[in-house]
Design a protein around this nucleic acid. Sequence first.
RNA 1: GCCCCUAUCGUCUAGAGGCCUAGGACACGAGCUUUUCAAGCUUGGAACACGGGUUCGAAUCCCGUUGGGGGCACCA
Length: 492
Amino acid sequence: MKMNISKEKKVRVRFAPSPTGYLHVGGLRTALYNYLFARKHDGMFILRIEDTDRSRYVEGAIENLIATLQWAGLDYDEGPIKGGNYGPYIQSERLDIYWQHAEQLLRAEKAYRCFCTSERLDEMRKSLEKIKASPKYDRACLKLSQSEISDKLKAGEPNVIRMKIPDSRLIKFNDLIRGNVEISSDILDDQVLIKSDGYPTYHFANVVDDYLMEVTHIIRGEEWLSSVPKHILLYEYFDWKVPELAHLPLLLNPDKSKLSKRQGDVAVEDFRTKGYLKDALINFVAFLGWNPGTEQEIFSLQELVEQFSLESVNKAGAVFNIDKLKWLNFEYLRGKSDTEVLQMLKEELSKSKYYQTQFDDKYLLGVIEAMRPRVNFVKDFIENCPYFFEPPIHYDVDVIKKRWKEDTPQQLKMLVEEFTKLENPNKADYEAALHKSAQRLNIGNGKLIHAVRLAISGTGCGPGLYDILFLLGKEENLKRIRTAIDEIKPIM
RNA sequence: GCCCCUAUCGUCUAGAGGCCUAGGACACGAGCUUUUCAAGCUUGGAACACGGGUUCGAAUCCCGUUGGGGGCACCA
């Protein structure tokens, strides 16, 4: 009787980016799903750097990647810098390991040396394309004799190591998201395992590392789905167990092509600098291809951990819909306390052109209170209402046309008189003074309200007028109104 | 060209044969509120790609078509 006593193995997953410059939002989602899965199952989340393409290496990319992951709150358990029992976690530091395994395959005749030049390969593919055949390697070097090989090796001829792909094998596997998939080995090329520069290809390094690092679940993008058969064959050649597989749906541009830089921001850093909150980005990206099946939209990272399951990940690609991200950012910003927003605003101010100006906390808190429903981003506090930080530089032409008439300056002079009489006015005092002026002028309140708004803010929109007046303070108000009276000329 | 994956409102999605007159969110329209702009509240329009089966019954299962995406490198 077969006993099923094998204890459930501890979950180990990895995020394995290549350091080509920045973290792509698609990468962020892959990392997130791995992270959620690991945390949910009390497993380990590994960061592995796949830097086997030396031509694409970008200086500082690894540090950048780690910093971005950290910003997003996706801390890893094992990986570069942090270390772990399965290191090194940077593939370029594991070359001897790959070679050891490549030689093992060579000895077992599961792989062979190939001396073909890239020129020959190009030509071969072109001619195959002409007759509309699959552009597969013709295995010319498989026919090389042992002595031919050693001669070429001795002569120092550049070469690669290719894996042998068996003929007509139907390779079946189960994907946690996609179910059963079958692919014939006939369409597979004799994949290069070790490149002529001695570095492994993705396919080889990936399989070797996932085994050695005891990865239990491979969670990655759908672009890898069609190379799974190659990997399965490699696992077979080594007599290793294939990890569980989960291929995530792709993130798409609005035109449904694979999400790309051309059509907008894709780097996590871009979103960060644009002022998106990490919680909003994480929440948003989590919902691209997954949702809990309830009507809840706002999820903390912890809630995501609790709710997440690979089984409920969608199969079809998801369009990256920036509008919803903005809305989420608004929601998250609204969820922050005044003191939290104050800190963020102060930081933003220190980076703005007002970095030399001192604003006291009480004042800024007032601005925050007034502007909260009107901003999606912290920097909107500055960009949408610069009049809280400096007098209007110019006055909105459309508003002048609509709200500033011939008799407006005269009317405002009356208002200035009323305002001047006020002592330590609060909002209601301003309101009362304005009403009184309007009454004495025998005009509607609106006339004055709109004109004053223009005079003190330069625009026609924003928080309630009395809120602005109160925040700015009497002296500033009077100064601005007087300036406006002198400067604004009605437009007919 | 070949192979693989995929298909519900414009977008993200709920839906595991009867709970579907297809639900929610974003976006959009209207109204309320209002000194403006927002926010908020109310409300409206908006989808099961198509064709065959299976079944008493199909958005849900099967087959095909069409559309979309991905892959086919000494890139990952």
